[in-house]
Design a protein around this nucleic acid. Structure first.
Length: 420
DNA sequence: TCTGGGGTCCTAGGACCC
DNA sequence: TCTGGGGTCCTAGGACCC
């Protein structure tokens, strides 16, 4: 970074020098247009130009993505599918194919990495890129943004919208200004002017509640917000959130682009088609979720200490109960047992329940012992080999044969193709 | 019209230890 | 017998994002 170079040159770094250097960054925010719907159209070109709506197929599902043609009917993501069907009866409703979106997402992220190693994905379809150090090789921000759009389009057939600015805050706001297929650059020094006319809801972290509260304070635009003193904002919104609002209104955002973030929690949840009252039924669901979560933990090579149960009652009241285990786990039985215990600390059985979820946090790399135990034993079980394994163990002792050896994993043959 | 599922981050209170 | 303050960990809830 420039800072490092400055420091190495022996130049004393005053706070304002650091500030100016940080202001000099080039941050790109790239965001795919109507991603899930666009992928569906890509895979089935006859959908082009039609109102495509991707969402779950149960009665309580919501819309995950809507093509621009569908948005013209007022359909948007997070809207109940039932409502979308009323607004857009001629719409083409498709189920979510997450694996396919993940596949394409990987391609896109690989392209981003050709421009800089500093790529911070925010979801499957968007990422921040700090391209400050790439500019001598690849040209200025606008040139790189154009190149990114072109490369993504050629490789995937999809369009994205890109924002270029000196901070994450502005880059993200810019990428949204001229969607779809947009390219918006804000020059250093023009940040505040661009911000001042925007409704406060455009700021990252300002949702419905904050908006309502700010409205009571007479704030509609970011310009209005910039007139409020910091003390008032911290008193109303807490130290952190208040300070953030104060800084964002001034276009000040020095958050770095962080590549390679590790997940902090992994969980699963289900909303039932009909509310459940029987504890036994809830436990069946909990068991399924525990298996799901444990599998994903092991896939990622992680284990966690804290198990959290989430219960949403019929009236949308949400409660969580959590407990911390002595050791990290990626074992579905341990996760399930913890969930069962936690379920007793809720009103389950007395009140109708709409949703249960379970998640594991305080994550750390799972030990090889934990992973081997499961990968080997679970696979052996799947292949119906556990009987053989048990028999051999019984006759020759525990260490006579490992599940890995039984599956031929140790002589280089593939052991995880899931076949039988 | 009736509200998903995957997450992150922050706050606050209580327990416990020194 | 009464009374501190700071630090850390755990738990619960809430706002927000895509």
């Amino acid at each position: 970074m420039r800072l490092a170079r400055l420091a190495a040159s022996g130049t004393p770094l005053s706070p304002s020098a650091i500030f100016l250097t940080l202001m000099d960054r080039i941050i790109i925010h790239a965001d795919m247009d109507a991603f899930y719907a666009a992928v569906e159209t890509l895979d089935n070109p006859s959908l082009r130009g039609k109102p495509v709506i991707v969402g779950g197929d149960s009665p309580r599902s919501v819309v995950s993505a809507a093509s621009y043609e569908a948005r013209a009917y007022g359909v948007h993501s997070a809207m109940p599918v039932i409502q979308a069907k009323k607004l857009c009866p001629g719409g083409i409703f498709l189920p979510v194919r997450m694996h396919r979106y993940q596949e394409i997402s990987q391609k896109i992220m690989e392209i981003f990495h050709r421009f800089t190693p500093l790529v911070e994905p925010l979801s499957l379809d968007e990422a921040f890129l700090d391209v400050t150090e790439s500019r001598r090789l690849l040209g200025d921000g606008r040139a790189m943004a154009m190149k990114i759009k072109e490369t993504v389009r050629l490789a995937t057939g999809l369009t994205c919208s890109v924002g270029v600015a000196s901070s994450k805050l502005l880059a993200k706001i810019c990428s949204d200004l001229h969607k779809p297929d947009g390219l918006t650059v804000v020059a250093p020094g023009e940040e505040r002017q661009l911000l001042s006319g925007l409704p406060i809801g455009r700021l990252w972290g300002v949702g419905a509640k904050t908006r309502d509260k700010l409205r009571l304070l007479g704030v509609q635009t970011v310009g209005d917000l910039a007139r409020l003193p910091e003390e008032l904002l911290t008193a109303a919104f807490g130290a952190k959130h208040g300070r953030n609002l104060y800084l964002m209104a001034r276009g000040e955002d020095h958050r770095p682009v962080v590549a390679g973030r590790e997940p902090k929690s992994i969980g699963g949840e289900t909303t039932f088609e009909r509310d459940l009252i029987e504890v036994a039924a809830l436990k069946r669901e909990l068991l399924g979720l525990s298996v799901q979560v444990a599998n994903r933990l092991r896939q990622k090579g992680l284990a966690g200490c804290t198990v959290t149960l989430k219960v949403k009652y019929h009236d949308f009241r949400l409660v969580t109960r959590s407990l911390t285990l002595a050791r990290p786990t990626c074992d579905q039985r341990e996760i399930f047992r913890a969930g069962e215990t936690l379920l007793e600390k809720t009103d389950a059985g007395r009140v109708r329940v709409r949703l249960v979820g379970v998640s594991v946090s305080s994550l750390a790399p799972a030990s090889s012992v934990q992973l081997d135990l499961f990968s080997g034993r679970e696979r052996a079980r799947q292949r119906g080999l556990h009987l053989a394994l048990d028999a051999i163990t019984e006759r020759f002792g525990k260490n006579a044969v490992t599940p890995a050896r039984l599956l031929g994993k140790e002589d280089g043959t593939k052991g995880d193709d899931g076949g039988g």
